[in-house]
Design a binder for these strands. Sequence first.
DNA 1: CTCAAAATCAGTAATGATTACTGTTTTTAT
DNA 2: ATAAAAACAGTAATCATTACTGATTTTGAG
Lengths: 123, 123
Amino acid sequence: MKNYSRQREAIMNVLHSTDMHPTASQVYKRVRQIIPNISLGTVYRNLSALSEAGEILTISVGEGCDHFDGNAKPHLHLHCRNCGNIADVEFDFKSVENKIADLSFAPETSVLVIHGVCKNCNK
Amino acid sequence: MKNYSRQREAIMNVLHSTDMHPTASQVYKRVRQIIPNISLGTVYRNLSALSEAGEILTISVGEGCDHFDGNAKPHLHLHCRNCGNIADVEFDFKSVENKIADLSFAPETSVLVIHGVCKNCNK
DNA sequence: CTCAAAATCAGTAATGATTACTGTTTTTAT
DNA sequence: ATAAAAACAGTAATCATTACTGATTTTGAG
């Protein structure tokens, strides 16, 4: 994927500069501080292209809209059903890959979301 | 969760009688064959309640709308980015649970989607 | 470098999934 | 038996996302 456009680069920078998992409109707000007249459609189009190219992850938590993660390496996402926060945890997907190795399914990326209640909300 | 309503029971039956992963409107179409005047809003409300109660799974594949799975036991979902099909594979989440055991996060259910290209589309 | 084709953009309109609302029916529990 | 609570059908409203337009930028061959 060619990363030549100023807009696409700014979007990548926003995603790389946070460990939150912003939604498209949150990315839009942040990118507007750099490129004030960027269009929301441009943000969606680029997030979609970047996700398809495997450079970012699209995290759907089953409620509300999609979230995006600048870290494309598969890992765990702990989603709190109370506050909605998404936390990252490293995880080796070897056991998962082994499980499907003989199914003639060509895996490209994985998204694992664990729903529950986070530390803060559990007090 | 009390399963007393005719509508909710019919929705559960639809989900239990298929290994596809129907969307809300697909569930709606099937349930209408049993209860012709059921409302789409009722389908959404019940799917949402059942999912929250942990009796079904909501599968978001990051494109299009949500899919629902009558099998609430966590397992792998192989999502083909070409044909959109979702296939189930059993998987033991023990290694995942161990990984987060000391994080004070109270897990309730997990959704693992592996994106790639399925057998049929890979020819 | 020059310039035409291709890609991307900003802005806006349209789509479509999901949710919210209203008045009615069903269920529950006293 | 009946009043309160829950769920319903039908419909309107919301809002995330996509599609479309004409303008701008990038690319690549000559």
